[in-house]
Design a binder for these strands. Structure first.
Length: 378
DNA sequence: ATGTTC
């Protein structure tokens, strides 16, 4: 087994096996971020792909300054995994789909007390709480497909006979507003640590993290209610965030953009809607900036998906995948943009992380029902 | 990514 940790240049590394798809432009963007003032180390994860100026699927460690633009607009985006009381044998996808119905709209008044108990500061984005959003966000009902580490599974109180729920969402319009206001004032120059401006951003960032976690919590509870099931979160982890961190001798700022923390317990690394997800135990390592891939990573740009796929598949065909799961996505544009073909194979991502010694597998999860949106748009 | 986008 070779090592997938590649040193690209001084302070720039990439975790990717030889057969992992990495776009040249994403490497270019990695070099761009490495040139930012105070940047000490950047690491591309195997799901690395180009973003708006800066790459997605990477971690960046700087000293003296930090860069809100590297975190992007979806501050606090992340994954929560839930165990449910649903017997997998008794709940086929069509039954789940029918029970779930449409969960795109705001939560009704019945949730007011529940929301108040979260004690979030007022942000003006309350009506987004409990909603998944667009882009690559989703909620997926899954089953345990293969077990590699039965002890860890038992510790997490996960039972093969019961369905799981995976929620991927973030801070919705709130993170977007925070980034926009920041960039309007400071462009992409970053902020000097300890300054009033830096403290102000960190305070907003902290609220966005709480909002995003609360959002995932409410999405999960809302889905469980619709599915007439009990359930609890097993884990919740952000993959877009800034954190003060010590790396070796240096104290500085760890930016994660589509990079899952490897120093915060077990995590799920999801594949596309047509692929498996993996529950893994991370091995914290400074060489990886204490981070992992946050998913499979895009292979195709959103803009090219429809052209490449519309002659091969009808919309109805895209509502089912090779693994047999059902896809709820009434948005004609989004169903092409999020097609399995648009993403890298999760196998290569997982193998890359294993080869670098960064994870131990706990279980492979298979999608049963992938929920994106009921909204008919475009 | 986006209480979006005539």
């Amino acid at each position: 087994m070779g090592n997938s940790l590649q040193q690209l240049a001084d302070g720039i590394s990439l975790i990717a096996s030889a057969d992992t798809w990495i776009e040249g432009n994403a490497i270019q963007q990695l070099h761009t971020t490495a040139k930012l003032s105070g940047m000490q180390q950047v690491v591309g994860m195997p799901d690395l792909h180009p973003g708006r100026g800066y790459p997605v699927g990477a971690a960046f460690f700087s000293t003296q300054r930090f860069y809100p633009a590297l975190i992007g607009n979806d501050i606090g985006c992340g994954m929560s995994l839930w165990r449910t009381s649903l017997d997998r044998a008794k709940h086929p996808a069509d039954k789940l789909e029918k029970r779930l119905g449409n969960i795109d709209g705001p939560l009704d008044d019945g949730w007011d007390e529940q929301i108040a108990a979260l004690n979030l500061p007022h942000t003006g984005f309350e009506s987004s709480l409990g909603t998944i959003g667009g882009g690559n966000h989703f909620a997926e009902i899954q089953q345990i497909d293969e077990i590699y580490d039965a002890d860890s599974l038992e510790t997490l109180q996960l039972d093969k006979r019961k369905l799981l729920l995976l929620v991927h969402s973030g801070s919705r319009g709130l993170g977007q507003l925070i980034l926009r206001q920041h960039v309007d004032r400071f462009s992409h120059d970053g902020l000097p640590e300890g300054s009033a401006e830096a403290e102000a951003y960190l305070a907003q960032h902290a609220v966005a993290l709480r909002f995003a976690e609360a959002n995932r919590q409410l999405i999960g509870l809302r889905m469980l209610e619709r599915l007439r099931a009990e359930g609890e979160p097993v884990l919740d982890i952000h993959h877009n965030l800034l954190a003060p961190t010590r790396v070796g001798e240096q104290s500085g700022w760890l930016h994660r953009k589509g990079a899952t923390p490897s120093d915060a317990g077990p995590v799920v690394i999801p594949g596309s809607r047509g692929d498996y997800s993996y529950l893994v135990m991370p091995v914290a390592d400074p060489c990886s900036l204490f981070s992992l891939a946050h998913g499979a990573g895009r292979k195709w740009m959103r803009s090219e998906c429809k052209d490449r796929l519309s002659s091969r598949y009808t919309v109805a065909q895209l509502a089912k995948t090779a693994l047999g799961n059902r896809v709820v996505c009434k948005d004609r544009q989004l169903i092409f943009e999020e097609a399995p073909e648009a993403y890298k194979s999760i196998t290569t991502i997982i193998e890359s992380l294993q080869q670098a010694g960064l994870i131990r597998l706990i279980a492979r999860l298979k999608p049963v029902l992938s929920y994106k949106t009921h909204g008919e748009c475009c």
